[in-house]
Write a protein that binds this DNA or RNA. Sequence first.
DNA 1: TTAACTAATCGTATATTTGCGATATACAAT
DNA 2: ATTGTATATCGCAAATATACGATTAGTTAA
Lengths: 108, 108
Amino acid sequence: MAASKKEQFDKEDIELAEFAKALSHPARVAIIKTLAKKNECVCGEIVEVLPLAQATVSQHLSELKKAGLIQGRVEGQNSCYCLDQKTFDKFIKAFSKFSEKIKSCDCR
Amino acid sequence: MAASKKEQFDKEDIELAEFAKALSHPARVAIIKTLAKKNECVCGEIVEVLPLAQATVSQHLSELKKAGLIQGRVEGQNSCYCLDQKTFDKFIKAFSKFSEKIKSCDCR
DNA sequence: TTAACTAATCGTATATTTGCGATATACAAT
DNA sequence: ATTGTATATCGCAAATATACGATTAGTTAA
């Protein structure tokens, strides 16, 4: 077994979980921070700052792209990445909605 | 191989990734929302609202506990869970620090 | 004490993720 | 045309996560 049951949950919960998953590896957090700092990076620059092989970084990049958090475009022989602000906004909104609920709860 | 390289990243990035990972399954998001709504739940109540077997829910609960996001105490023959506000505050702070960086970036 | 109940843990199957070398592709420079 | 460079993808191995039935341990009820 171990067939995923993820589809059986609330759409909202699935969405938040998917965003969270995109951030659930330090390499992906680091990639996003790097992009935020430089506004835009070619793949090679990202590979340089991470302790991972090129193939692995490429994989993390494509996961972030799949999640919609970054965009990539080809430029000559480079691949140029930047954040996708719009999706991030969605994520940030989803998360604050979630965290509002928590704040209003008074467990001791 | 595939030996984890997670330790080789920034402490801050690792921490945020770990929090994110705790939320990276819809069942865990749902558990937290349920606890936020009811303030406190016994395990059985949580099992009822999720489309998962008791053993699986117990596993998710222990992951959330490991991440510090919830607390559990035994009460008679029940296990009573509630959110851990303090850790959540840490998480929320870490995330807003992170998202500040993103907002200030102007990719088109 | 026995029976019923609650929840954690064990064992196991399967799925997914992580990581990398090797290769493929596409462009740039010579 | 050949060579070099950048990056994506393939194929694989190892690690981790997901899911659950069965069992265990503890608590309450009879």
